[in-house]
Design a protein around this nucleic acid. Sequence first.
DNA 1: ACCTGAACACCGTTCAAGT
DNA 2: ACCTGAACACCGTTCAAGT
Lengths: 239, 239
Amino acid sequence: MTLPRARGTAGSHPRLTREEIVRVALRTLERDGLEQITLRRLAEELGVTAAAVSWHVRSKDELVDAIVQASLRTLRPPQPESGEWTGRLRELHTWFRASLLERRHLVFTPAFRRALPYAFVPVELAGTRILREAGVAEGDAEGASRLLHWHTIAVALNEAGAAHAPPPGRTPRPVLDGAIESLTAADFASFIERLPEMLDTDPDRTFAFGLDCLLRGLQRRLLIARSSRGTRARRPSKR
Amino acid sequence: MTLPRARGTAGSHPRLTREEIVRVALRTLERDGLEQITLRRLAEELGVTAAAVSWHVRSKDELVDAIVQASLRTLRPPQPESGEWTGRLRELHTWFRASLLERRHLVFTPAFRRALPYAFVPVELAGTRILREAGVAEGDAEGASRLLHWHTIAVALNEAGAAHAPPPGRTPRPVLDGAIESLTAADFASFIERLPEMLDTDPDRTFAFGLDCLLRGLQRRLLIARSSRGTRARRPSKR
DNA sequence: ACCTGAACACCGTTCAAGT
DNA sequence: ACCTGAACACCGTTCAAGT
């Protein structure tokens, strides 16, 4: 629509920078979703040629990488200092889930997957710290924190995927049919009976239930003292 | 390279069908990955024009949907009939994880995400059945089975993402840097110390650990009798 | 009904040319 | 150093025309 305006005139920015490109991309991402982001459209919005964008950004892959990194740079996990360890972990992962959902347009991106092992190290560490202060042995605390970490990612990714599956009417029937075919006769009956509640569930409750089960499992497995903080774990560290 | 051969001549198929398109697409998917799949390239491989493919398949989105559905149609969860409930659930979800990993090129597709709530209903139901036979109340068994179900999806998606992150040398440094910035001084030290083991972990062990924690958590929460099958749960069903 | 040939709009990327 | 204009190869989709 708009022709590329000459840079430096009124109403346009004096210079195109990589940061500005990423900023505009992030804005249109939240408005229109990822597949609407195009170097050409971005250029138009910036009042510039597509080639100009390509000059600042080596490739589109690199642009998406930059978008993901810009989006992740603002993450700061809360560090609840007081309270029982279960409550502190609950607070940490409730926050974590929310911040993943805020980035729901990005979480299925290859760039995001590449960042996955690194981006949430602070979350893992925060969880590990809470567990260690609760008396869990060193090696176990790490594994447990990572377990919670993944559970939250799982639930959030599932929610994110369902959230912007655009056509609510267009149910993927064939998949459902294929699934039904493989059911035994006994399962089929209970499937029909329970179908409605399987399809609409409260994500908040499911998340809370899963987290609760995990925490209880850790409590049992790691032999954490119920209420006293600082109690040593009975099971010794392996190293 | 090869010009579209006339259909019906030696070495080419007499007729193009939707099924054949999907079959060839599935084959090249496993060989080259999803982003290499193109209507035009598919057409060339089929000895046909791109327009011909478009005649059998309404759009590329629909093609990917068909690929996902074809890939999911062969899923048949195992139905272990004997043994303790924990072992049976372990067997079920070990199989589940493996079948997700076999489809690692598809799991991040919008089509797959749309299928996610439906495609694995048999897995959920198989898990529910095992739990109910172990004496878990009806509503709880469903929630518990779904929890396991999601945990497996989480771990598998994470593995699948890491598996075909193509450049092993190109670490997304900025993301890691951003993550490090947000660390407290205390966490930073333990981060440096533990970095190597955080980056290369044994996925098998992590999966087993998580599953184990979940099962123990369920054991505690749902008050399942340890070894005797068929014992009633002490907590009554809510309905 | 099924397929070709040609076109269309759009895409990412490159590159000589300007400033 | 930064940007334009034009081109290139490729993409999904459409459509008149053939059989």
